[in-house]
């Protein structure tokens, strides 16, 4: 094989996410401070919904007590089933559709939202068994859900979202504001 000469580049080696996904953000979801979501859009238009690293669940050494995909009496995201190439039967979600509720051991509760319009393909059941995954690897194994936007909306769904640069500037303004108030 070739390319062995790159052996010392591991620090810069782009991760799977960097190579194939674009990061999009929604800050202060529904006006709730710091409840930031990160949407990873694959070049094939598919989106993985994750918690942004700034999300309160990942702050202050919180631990998770419970993750619940039952978002109402009538609807559980765990019942979502898709079949065939066309993914028939998947729940269709709009921007503010709740995906799950996370309760932390300090009794704080957070709702995670879809952030984009599209068909729900799967939710991450691994984090039900091991909630710690969400804290350890929020942007990979601790993902929340996979959503497939409509083909014709694959570009427009990210119009209301922040780019990585925009999000970083939001976050830095936040810390400035925080340091001023403190």
């Amino acid at each position: 094989m070739d390319g062995v000469e790159q052996k010392d580049t591991e620090a810069n080696a782009p991760s799977v996410i960097d190579r194939y996904y674009t990061r999009w953000y929604r800050a202060d979801m529904k006006g709730k401070p710091c409840e930031d979501h990160c949407i990873l859009q694959h070049s094939n238009r598919l989106c993985v919904i994750t918690l942004a690293e700034t999300h309160p669940v990942l702050q202050k050494g919180r631990t998770i007590k419970n993750i619940n995909y039952q978002i109402s009496n009538a609807c559980s995201r765990l019942n979502n089933k898709v079949s065939g190439k066309s993914k028939r039967g998947g729940q269709f979600l709009t921007d503010f559709a709740p995906l799950c509720r996370i309760t932390c051991t300090d009794e704080t509760e957070y709702t995670i939202y879809s952030c984009i319009r599209g068909r729900l393909l799967e939710v991450n059941e691994s984090i039900l068994e091991r909630p710690a995954l969400l804290l350890e690897k929020p942007s990979t194994e601790g993902y929340i859900a996979v959503i497939l936007p409509k083909f014709e909306e694959s570009k427009s769904i990210t119009e209301n979202l922040l780019t990585r640069e925009q999000f970083e500037s939001v976050v830095s303004k936040r810390s400035v504001a925080q340091s001023q108030t403190s």
């Binding site: 052996k7 694959h42 094939n44 898709v82 065939g84 190439k85 996979v146 497939l148």
Partner: peptide
Amino acid sequence: LRVLHRRALAVRQRVIHTMNARFLD
């Protein structure tokens, strides 16, 4: 996820018969 937009969602069992590792660095 790379092909999920055009293939059905399923869990498929596949076997890796053998592997060998050659250390580089």
